[in-house]
Design a protein around this nucleic acid. Structure first.
Lengths: 245, 245
DNA sequence: GAGTGGTCTAGACCACCCG
DNA sequence: GGGTGGTCTAGACCACTCG
């Protein structure tokens, strides 16, 4: 074995192969339900060892794009499982990708003291200084969601001195720029009756229920970064979730 | 290399090692935030090659129990990410595991014709025969959820002739016994106002919002198995979701 | 029995991080 | 420079499925 030609374009081979196979599926070259060539054969075709090829397949199987049958083969799944709300993505960017008209309006940004629930989620003491950021999201002209985010003033002390309007458009990027790259989160959803002040901001009457959400975001290490309350118009907003095993 | 002693107790080595490491974390032997021995060292300790050991770690990293830092080491995450509603599990069994008092009451089971939404989800034609199964779930004495499940009468023709009361307690097991092992699902959540007949069954008044859910279950191949409407009491029921990347 | 995926080895070199 | 994880190899044997 000489050398691996891995970094021809800076990417590991298994990623290039994975994306090549994904492309062949999404383009329709590989039809749903169709059997792929065997792992041995694919490894040969792509010029890698079988272990490397299996690394490519593993990711696609995890996504639900492929499935394996022991002793039979590897197949393209019949159903594509779309991106969903279990993947953390920037709301404004993804909505724009989908061709939707989105605005975000800054409602409030200030320094405050952590109440019990916020403190517990962020692993702080009650009364510790936190930044509170309230925004309103407007989809196709309809106010749809109020966000009330909290994060540690010690970790993110320069937020309120920056261009808040700009920073709040991509908080995940801001967190990362401070060394806190968000990797995981836990969220909890409830149906709730609407409260007065929220009905007013969302411009709906009190019979419309709210899809209420609490969310905590963490780094890979498990450090809590943000705690969020989220009030969504029940009649316009739904949450899609992929389930496994 | 002689032979692999893999199947000493019927399990692959990487699974035994994975569970051993998981146990050491959950038992507190490995403390949160602590650095694990290097992969080379762990491989030596467990008497396997490094690639095999990495297979063990990969699963634990995926779960969020561990995280890696390139050039630094592998660490135990600070935050444990609990089991959640993105994992498909049997409701009655899991509730009992948690020490909760659960009952399930059969409301209705009959053959019917698929309406548009059901037909689309199950990949059938409108009017095709489907089984409709309605159940009520009661948690600690409170009616909490109405389930309205639909599945293909052709695939599951003997359901209505069986012991429905018994079969409906573990539909996933029933589906699997017919050769349809559920592997994935897509669900959608909304907040909704309550309707008359549902308010009556759940014994709540009409000001209580509903957490409404639609769900389709699929095999690994992507064959739709079940479509479900689910009406949850908003004031007693919440859904927890883990997010990644 | 032939073909497939499942597991495993004993190395190798690279990229990254730290002192 | 030394230690770590990231990628990759060129094989091997096993377990499963099907004709």
């Amino acid at each position: 074995m000489l050398d691996n030609l891995a970094n021809i374009n800076g990417l590991p081979q298994y990623i290039r192969i994975r994306e090549s196979i994904r492309e062949r599926i999404l383009s329709g070259e590989l039809v749903r339900g169709e059997k792929l060539p065997s792992e041995d054969e694919l490894a040969m075709v792509y010029g890698v060892s079988r272990m490397t090829l299996r690394q490519s397949l593993a990711d696609l199987i995890d996504e639900g794009l492929l499935y394996r049958k022991h002793g039979v083969g590897t197949f393209v799944a019949l159903q594509q499982f779309a991106r969903d709300h279990t993947v953390l993505r920037n709301f404004i960017e993804t909505s724009k990708e989908e061709g939707l008209n989105v605005e975000e309006k800054l409602l409030d940004a200030r320094l405050t003291s952590a109440k019990f629930q916020v403190a517990r989620a962020l692993n702080l003491e009650e009364g510790d200084k936190v930044v509170c950021l309230k925004t309103l999201r407007i989809l196709e002209g309809n106010p749809i969601t109020i966000h009330e985010a909290y994060f540690d003033h010690v970790k993110f002390s320069d937020f309120l001195e920056g261009n808040i309007e700009e920073l709040s458009k991509d908080l995940l990027a801001y967190y990362e720029s401070k060394g806190y790259k968000v990797k995981r989160g836990i969220q909890r959803l409830e149906a709730r009756s609407i409260e007065n002040d929220i009905a007013e901001i969302l411009q709906i009457d009190e019979s419309t229920p709210l899809l209420y959400k609490e969310r905590t975001l963490y780094t890979a290490e498990g450090i809590p970064v943000e705690f969020l309350y989220c009030y969504n118009r029940g009649d316009l907003y739904s949450v899609t979730i992929n389930l496994t095993t």
